[in-house]
Amino acid sequence: MKNILELQNVHVEIEEAYVLQGVSFQVPEGQLVAILGRNGAGKTTTLESILGLWPPFDGDVAFKGESLLGVPPYKIAQKGIGYSPDSARIFSNLTVEENLRMGTLNQDSADLEYAYELFPLLKDHSANLGKSLSGGEQKLLALARAMVDKSNELLLIDEPTEGLSPENSQKVYRALDKVKERASVLLVADNLQLAEKFAEKFLVMANGVVEEKGNIEKLIENSEIAEKYLGTGVQ
């Protein structure tokens, strides 16, 4: 199976903090890979370094076999990578519809129907400003914005259910089920159940390195991994 994304020995510094210390893994085409780890393990930085927001000072990031090093973030996104950050980061002074249009900049015309299919409640709020939504709704909007462009081949999704009500978490599960059919996903999972439910592969990060990785069955069968690196109640 071909890899859509490959990180090789990626090192990243942020304001003199040595955050990623040689991260290597692959995302096979059509699969969902879950990243697990405690806070500060380097999960979000990994996603942001793929997008070029924190460019690696050593190592390589390749998308569909092509290195992304030195490529500006907007061009990386234009190659077909969607991104939903952990803190939503919606555009608070743009309407819901305009936020979704920001997710379709690579398309000639903005087709937002797919986003409304995934999260119907957003249609009811389409003319409302992003800042008028609840925290949970903002999170759903960020996910919809990452998923709305059907031409994206890889989605980077950071802690999609963190802080969500069980009802909204179910909406995220249904959306993940749908997007998995057409795109590869690198998912920072905010809980073990999310990874076990959707991922084919997993990797566990700690202190800026990948400590464990493999098929998801390995994680399910080996409770020591979760206990050692995630801790009860942490992830």
Binding site: P73, Y74, L94, E98, M102
Partner: peptide
């Protein structure tokens, strides 16, 4: 739209493909 989005969060606008 990109200008207004950029005023809100320029890095996020970049990450979505805005030049």
């Amino acid at each position: 739209l990109i200008v207004r989005a950029g005023i809100d969060d320029v890095d996020m606008a970049k990450a979505l493909g805005a030049n």
